[in-house]
Design a protein around this nucleic acid. Structure first.
Lengths: 205, 205
DNA sequence: CGCTGACACGAGTCCTCGCTCGCGTTCAAC
DNA sequence: GTTGAACGCGAGCGAGGACTCGTGTCAGCG
């Protein structure tokens, strides 16, 4: 009953046929979104790409926003899962932990460059909410890790450090993927590692 | 004759009256843009806000995009000027130079938080081009400053360092202005200074 | 004053888009 | 096979937006 609880489906698909239709709609939504951005993702275009009448969209979704919300949610879930998995997977890499984390993140973003571009450029409220939400969860993770290593540091400073590190790493990696500047993958990883490492060492020398 | 040279005015205003009209249109465009975002910045709304008929817009601008382009250009010019001035103004602050630069940047962005929000969230191609263009110019400035201090470092590494520092500082300051996290101005300046300083020290110890 | 071009106006045109609704089709249950 | 619900379809409605055009007003000049 909250203001913006996830819009329910208008009708819950019962037969196999309709479940496939919903799937086709969401896939088409993803394609159209990646190819033409939010601007060009009209309902008629999505329906056409799904090989479905415009009316069929509204059998299962209350409105356009609900469709794109689900599309974005799915895509971002994938991306988040990929990143989180990479993050956790490189936890045991003791010494070069920072670099391994950065490497995993950079590769995850590179693998979904089109998605990252669309979500970063046309930026509807949904996508923005998801981005900030995810960032905040990572904030907590990083803050926890930092606090474990420096139990004497206060809660406040640790939170500030975590917040800043997360924004830094987020934007540098995304900018690298999108701008493709004249800086190689290895070079940017070296620099980012130095940035984070130098900071942490400076901060808690 | 190039593909996207700046759209010329349809008619160059000759009398004082019409020059004032153009001014009113651009001012209204700015207000509407800041209050309702790109989404809500319709031509009719801008005309109404300017106290002008819809037709009058097209006496001087070929289409809607041209109007918003000029509005964005003006706003970003102001912001750029403010930032550049602050940057140059704090050049002589010898020892704490880094911190002074960051302070100036943060304050400039805070003073125009609404503009920063609109340009960062709904992000049309124009605004994005301008952002990247500005960033690249700052890249060059910073690279120059770094090279002056470390003449023995190669061109490539210096460019990479400059590129990364600029993206880092850009996004951390903008995120702070937009998210208003639970981190005070002094704290974030301390942290950013430590981040940049620690990095540079690590990099060229 | 009278004339002319510059300027302002805003009802109206055309178009796109989100969304509906009535009808035809397919499927599952008996 | 029959029936009724689930499903699919797509022409079309209403809203809103960009932009036009015919008409009226104003400034400057003789």
């Amino acid at each position: 009953m909250t203001a913006d609880e996830p819009r329910a489906m208008r009708r819950r698909p019962a037969q196999e046929r309709s479940r496939a239709t919903v799937e086709r709609i969401l896939d088409a939504g993803r394609s159209v979104l990646l190819e033409r951005g939010f601007e060009g993702a009209s309902t008629n275009r999505i329906a056409a790409a799904a090989g479905v009448g415009p009316g069929s969209l509204y059998q299962y979704f209350p409105d356009k926003e609900a469709i794109l919300d689900r599309v974005v949610d799915r895509a971002v879930d994938d991306l988040e899962a990929r990143i989180t998995r990479a993050f956790l997977g490189s936890l045991r890499a003791g010494d070069d932990a920072v670099r391994h984390h950065l490497e995993a993140l950079l590769d995850a973003l590179s693998a979904e460059a089109d998605l990252v571009r669309v979500l970063s450029q046309d930026r509807p409220r949904t996508a923005e909410r998801r981005r900030v939400g995810f960032a905040r969860r990572i904030d907590a993770l990083v803050a926890g890790a930092l606090l474990a290593e420096h139990p004497d540091a206060g809660r406040g400073p640790v939170d500030a450090v975590a917040w800043m590190l997360v924004r830094t790493v987020e934007h540098v990696t995304i900018s690298w993927v999108l701008e493709r500047p004249d800086v190689g993958r290895e070079a940017i990883l070296d620099e980012l590692t130095a940035l984070v490492g130098g900071y942490l060492r400076t901060r808690w020398a």
